[in-house]
Design a protein around this nucleic acid. Sequence first.
DNA 1: TATCATACCTTGGTATTCTATGTATATGTC
DNA 2: GACATATACATAGAATACCAAGGTATGATA
Lengths: 110, 110
Amino acid sequence: MDKRYMALGTSMLVLSLLKQQSMYGYQMIRELEQRSQMVFRLQEGTLYPVLHSLEQQGAVISMQKTAENGRMRKYYEITSHGKKLLQEKAEEWKIYETAVNQVMGGVLFG
Amino acid sequence: MDKRYMALGTSMLVLSLLKQQSMYGYQMIRELEQRSQMVFRLQEGTLYPVLHSLEQQGAVISMQKTAENGRMRKYYEITSHGKKLLQEKAEEWKIYETAVNQVMGGVLFG
DNA sequence: TATCATACCTTGGTATTCTATGTATATGTC
DNA sequence: GACATATACATAGAATACCAAGGTATGATA
């Protein structure tokens, strides 16, 4: 994950994954890589603190489960508060995206 | 300026302003506010260090001028190196923007 | 049994931006 | 003339986001 770009919040991306389905941390890292075509390579040192923080805020809840393969996994589920938070962040992202493109204007080519 | 969002680099926005015309610092702050409809409210404590850093990198050059009103102004001009840098950043921005929208998918509404 | 992939976690550091502050000049207003 | 406001530059210190590097532990593979 490139520091210059991710400051908008790993939390927004994490919440948007969890809105679609409950997941465990390790899985989120793989999912983000896939869905972003390797643009977002989330580090564990980034993700786990973010998850803990989101749980403290009440945006997600966690449940320990033992998978078929015997491994321990900590599944995270988004709460209604988390959904509201995500909605807000998504709106801010749209505003931000528009503003950048407006300023960049002629520089962009696509 | 909201810390969560500007991490992509004030420098990209600054360079894109300077590509269009030479400007002095104070002017850039006003311009960015206008062009982004007040989304980007660059702080002086952010801008000036960025300008100094860009100058050190050779992405811009500065010239002191005294304006008609007698005020001192430090005009900045983008160099060819700066233009190349801007082009790179603009391409990264496009990649990043696409990736976010891909991950966000259903969450976005516009 | 050694190594790899999975799965969790924390500590310490760097980079970016903000807040707060300082200096100085010009302009408008009372 | 005095004072506030806008212009115009600058720096120091704090906050934040993210990463790099390390640790623990289990299951699968060779």
